[in-house]
């Protein structure tokens, strides 16, 4: 019971204090699961990251599910996953409800007008950081350019694009 509670608290903390999502969460996860609680070693942690990267979904959820299972079985995986998403749910609920209440205020409109161009920059930056680790050779760059063209201008479905790229990977590498 104590281990379950520890898991919940740890992942709640990870969910509550990591802004920016994705890779920005990794230092905090590392701190909690390797250094503070010693649930796994650094080598195991790298393996879990590799698996998190190859499986669909946000890395924080993947690590929570995996770590939870290692520490306390299926129940542990549920508790850890719940812990990591609960802060998101609470915060987004509060934001949505307060936005709804003030939706006629010009301030809400102004805030969003200022944030929207920032979002485009943020996602552009995400593309750069993913690109730095993903585009390792000419073949990869060609895959990226070709798929960008088809998804953007020929309306290729993104899910289909992922499937095609996996098959292309088997053929080219």
């Amino acid at each position: 019971m104590n281990a379950l509670f520890q898991l919940f608290i740890s992942f709640f903390k990870i969910g509550a204090f990591s802004f920016g999502g994705g890779y920005a969460m990794l230092p905090l996860i590392e701190e909690e699961v390797i250094h503070t609680h010693k649930w796994i070693t650094s080598a195991e942690y790298i393996d879990i990251l590799a698996i998190a990267e190859m499986t669909p979904g946000p890395i924080a959820i993947n690590s929570a599910t995996f770590l939870g299972y290692r520490v306390y079985g299926v129940l542990g995986s549920m508790v850890a996953t719940l812990g990591v998403i609960l802060p998101s749910f609470i915060v987004m609920s509060i934001i949505f409800i307060s936005m709804y209440r003030f939706k006629n205020s010009p301030y809400v409109d102004w805030v969003f007008k200022g944030i929207r161009p920032v979002v485009i920059g943020l996602i552009g930056a995400a593309a750069v950081s993913v690109g730095r680790t993903s585009l390792v050779d000419l073949k990869g760059i060609l895959i990226a350019i070709t798929l960008f063209y088809f998804v953007t201008f020929k309306k290729l479905n993104p899910i289909l694009a992922i499937v095609i790229s996996g098959v292309v990977g088997i053929i080219l590498y």
Binding site: E53, M54, R116, P117, V119, I120, I123, G124, A126, A127, V130, G131, T133, S134, L135, K139, G140, I141, I143, A144, I145, T146, L147, F148, V151, T152, P158, A161, I162, I164, S165, G166, V167, V168, G169, I170, L172, Y173
Partner: peptide, 27 residues
């Protein structure tokens, strides 16, 4: 599995860039 991911990783970059492009185009 490693080969499949060698293909998928660049695709992810393409998808994200495509999202940036269409957000910009539609604003």
């Amino acid at each position: 599995i490693e080969k499949i991911f060698m293909g998928i990783r660049p695709a992810v970059v393409a998808l994200i860039l495509s999202a940036v492009y269409s957000m910009w185009k539609n604003s």
